[in-house]
């Protein structure tokens, strides 16, 4: 579904992405692990088109999208959420979701009032229910708490009804209850949706992942099932800070 081959990205002398190849099947849940600065977010930025790779190719659903713009990739069903909230802060949560839905459905170019379109109103309610924001729909984003903004961050990406969803540390900085709810959300997503998650919460990562990719210094150093990852001494060394017995 999403396949990247031999991606390289360098800022001057610094190689932030070094020969990264990753292939995610349709419906797969892939968790990307790695210490800070391993190039996880850079990889996401390259995949969605916010950064262009120095070399390498990216295919989405079989189509080469390497030269495509961010919006062209999004139109083809590639959505992402951000590690740092990237929302419409001066608008209400309802308006935020409406913008995402209208863009995805084409209502953004129509002369009709988006919020009077029953299909869109219904979809707003549906997404809001998914990310537990129903009772806050009419609050402006800048008046709601950090946690609610994290939920909206994921909600915006979900609202576009993507084929491939990239989530960059969706649970960073939120409480245990919310991590659990996010867990449930992940499990409730349609099985044909392809999901890539950068995650620091190990329990969550190992529980939801079909496959785990570990990055270090911009390179893929490990790829395998959650079980293999847990057992891997290399991963223990670089990521979990454990000692190497081998």
């Amino acid at each position: 579904m999403l396949e990247a081959r031999n991606l390289h990205k360098a800022f001057g002398q610094v190689r932030v992405t070094n020969d990264v190849s990753i292939a995610v099947e349709k419906g797969e849940r892939r968790v990307v692990l790695g210490p800070n600065g391993a190039g996880k977010t850079t990889l996401f930025n390259i995949l969605v088109g916010e950064l262009s790779p120095t070399s390498g190719t990216i295919r989405l659903g079989g189509e080469d999208v390497t030269g495509h713009s961010v919006e062209a990739r999004a139109k083809r069903g590639l959505a992402r959420s951000y590690q740092k909230n990237n929302l419409f802060n001066d608008l209400t949560i309802r308006d935020n979701l409406a913008l995402a839905i209208a863009t995805a459905t084409g209502a953004a170019s129509r002369m009709g009032d988006t919020l009077r379109d029953p299909a869109i109103v219904e979809r707003i309610e549906e997404v809001a229910a998914r990310v537990n924001l129903r009772e806050l729909l009419d609050q402006p984003v800048d008046s709601v708490s950090y946690g609610a903004r994290r939920q909206l961050e994921v909600g915006l990406a979900l609202a576009t009804n993507p084929r491939v969803l990239l989530m960059d540390e969706p649970t960073s900085g939120v409480g245990p209850e919310m991590i659990r709810a996010f867990h449930d959300l992940l499990k409730s997503l349609p099985r044909d949706l392809t999901v890539l998650i950068i995650e620091h919460d190990m329990d969550l990562a190992f529980d939801v992942a079909d496959q785990v990719t570990v990055l270090n210094y911009g390179e893929v150093v490990f790829e395998g099932t959650p079980g293999d990852t847990r057992e891997s001494s290399l991963v223990n060394e670089i990521y979990l800070g454990g000692s190497v017995d081998a």
Binding site: A74, K75, F88, L91, D95, T103, A104, R110
Partner: peptide
């Protein structure tokens, strides 16, 4: 209209509008 709302979305956060596919 949907167009006008989208315009406000662009003012508010152009980058995210692009990321949403606009």
């Amino acid at each position: 209209s949907g167009f006008g709302r989208t315009l406000v979305g662009i003012r508010s956060n152009e980058g995210r509008m692009r990321a949403l596919g606009l």
